[in-house]
């Protein structure tokens, strides 16, 4: 069973600026451990000859020409914004 400590959960939560209750810390500790456990299955294989994969698709150079297209109208830009100040998004002080 992969282990993840309570401090590690709190650390990751702090990086995301999320406040967790003690119950939530315990819950995520278990869930994150399960995820790590599942992913660590891969290490059961001998992959010493396999180069790291950055992307599963065997293609490269998917790009677009440098030609402008229309932007969103402001009412759509702000449609889901919780707070707005003129044409700015407004957030708690950062």
């Amino acid at each position: 069973m992969a282990r993840i400590t309570r401090d590690e959960v709190l650390h990751v939560a702090r990086l995301a600026r999320i406040e967790l209750s003690d119950d939530e810390v315990a819950k995520f500790q278990e869930q994150l451990a399960n995820i790590l456990e599942a992913v660590s299955k891969v290490s059961e294989l001998d992959l010493s000859d396999v180069p790291p994969t950055a992307h599963p698709l065997e293609i490269a150079n998917a790009w677009a020409e440098d030609v402008p297209r229309d932007c969103l109208p402001l009412d759509e830009v702000f449609a889901n914004a919780p707070d707005r100040d003129g044409d700015y998004f407004r957030t708690p002080p950062a």
């Binding site: 402008p68 297209r69 932007c71 969103l72 402001l74 830009v77 702000f78 044409d87 700015y88």
Partner: peptide, 27 residues
């Protein structure tokens, strides 16, 4: 100083009204 942004085709430039050069990708 490209015409458009790095990962969407919104205009890359100074002087626009705030948030007028945005789209679902850069938002």
């Amino acid at each position: 100083k490209t015409e458009t942004k790095m990962f969407c085709r919104c205009r890359n430039g100074f002087g626009g009204e705030p948030n007028s050069q945005t789209c679902p990708v850069c938002l």
